[in-house]
Nucleic acid binder design. Sequence first.
RNA 1: GGCCCCGUAGUUCAAUGGAUAGAAUAGAAGUUUCCUAAACUUUAGAUGCAGGUUCGAUUCCUGCCGGGGCUACCA
Length: 600
Amino acid sequence: MESQIKDGISAAFQALYTHDIAADDVALQPTRKDFEGTYTFLTFPFGRVSKKGPEETGNELGEYLKANVSVVADYNTVKGFLNLVLSENSQVDQFAAMFNGTDIAASPVFQVEKKNKTVVVEYSSPNTNKPLHLGHLRNISLGNSVARILEASGHKVVKVQIINDRGIHICKSMLAWQRFGNGETPASSGMKGDHLVGKYYVAFDKAYKEEIADLVAKGMAKEVAEKEAPILKAAQEMLKKWEAKDPEVYSLWETMNSWVYEGFDATYERMGVDFDKLYYESDTYLIGRDRVMEGLEKGVFYKKEDGSVWADLTEEKLDQKLLLRKDGTSVYMTQDIGTALMRYDDYPDLSQLIYTVGNEQEHHFRVLFAILKRLGYDWAEACYHLSYGMVDLPEGKMKSREGTVVDADDLMAEMAGTAKERTAELGKIDGFTEEQALKLYETLGLGALKYFLLKVDPRRSMLFNPADSIDFQGNTGPFIQFAFARNSAILRKASQLGIDITGIDYDNVSELHETEKDLIQAIGQYKEKLNLASDKYSPAIIAQYVYDLAKSYNRFYTEVKIFDEQDLEKRKFHIALSALTAQTIKLCMGLLGIDVPERM
RNA sequence: GGCCCCGUAGUUCAAUGGAUAGAAUAGAAGUUUCCUAAACUUUAGAUGCAGGUUCGAUUCCUGCCGGGGCUACCA
């Protein structure tokens, strides 16, 4: 349909002005709601070609299209905007092409080309010393959604995370557990493993602060005390033992990490996300070190007098970056070099490596990509930092030290709890089994949460107001889920009445209501708007789209009153339109990683 | 200081350089014999400031003002 119009415009330029413009280069945009038409073509840029004013050019083109392109029923020109009105038949035809009664994803309209290269998407990537928080939830929702979108676009996708399982922060938790833990385990305490370990991380910090205060009271300068506190020294000592693989320390490290992983797994499962491969920093930091040494031999890096190794990136305006300390140990950057190289070894056909990491690390990734390029890896160009803004709270920033973090597990439980309250108030779960009801609360609570996090442009900082997020009205996940549930109800009803929507006689579907046209148009623009064929990945755009669709649907639902219709063909058509809407909603929500309930 | 990102209704978010800057929410007024009212309809309300580029600027450029981030031999 669209291509017919583009071809027509191309031909019109040739016929009217003997001007060549390729059909692919013709830019059409959806007509704004306040004007009549489906597609709009801008004539402003072509005054030079037509040697006429924009409005007259529009009229001439419109006249040509009306006469020569069958789907164009009429046109109107407002200034330089040529609005094309499509014939009603063509809209029904468009609908028939999209609707095959069963699965929209299988419809030829929505097919995308399979690509045979691999895209690696990294997300989540937590530290193993404390549980996940709200910031991780934004990261996880975003990364997982991007992975789903890329997969739907035909890419082979590998979801990975790098687990920051080594370093002084882990030793702090371990040390505190040794001193204050009395052998407490997740089983003995009933605590989730990651929360238990997080508790000892906090305990360390408390003890550390007390020691500093003591030392200061004894007359030591604060800066000195911060470095000399015995418990910190002990943690540093422990890190050395860990690096030397001291059996006792190493075994404690393995045990406590396993607790944390169990906890993380439970959180991931509740979030509905998973990973294809895990990378551990305890593996990658050594590889990074080796590769840096190779780079040093090749003269890509240089050594300072004290023995430390650096990359000189002044040419790239990124200054100098330390890669190995004078004692030969790795820094964060060294590990990330190792991780990147491991991934390339694991997936030599990778076409893109996406890092879902907060925007406070933009500088870090700029440096990392520059170093990879220096090392001679072409695929450094294929690395992409999917950067996102911080999640702020109404009271201000989240700070773990001040106890203002919103815990991921607590938040998910709270969302499901609110869904339960609201649902009970409305008496919506009559006839549900206990199990079905629990599943619904979970679907709604998590849908609300994920949608809230995804609808904002990733690069922006966003404000998370728990009260608003739990609002189940307006531009929210539950609103969209509700639109889906209503569609499903219509299909159930149709099925009860024995209406078979696969056999629609489209020729007998005459006049379309405005809201029906809106819906058909909205669904028809799906592919274009979501850009599945290109490599753009924006959950925010999908969220906006599916919300618009749900809204159109609800209006349709209210105005059309499907089952009042006497005409059977028209009734079938309406039901089919509902089915198509439902499938499109499900598909979009699937791209966001959000489940939709059949009933609610 | 230098570099990066962001400033849009009271609030939370939109807007490939295009039409009268869209939604949602809070406010005001309505809609239920009906297939799911967690819905729908109507109404009021915004581009930080000053220049520039052009047919046209929320968008691109410059300066200023305001907010955030980065600028570790922490991870």
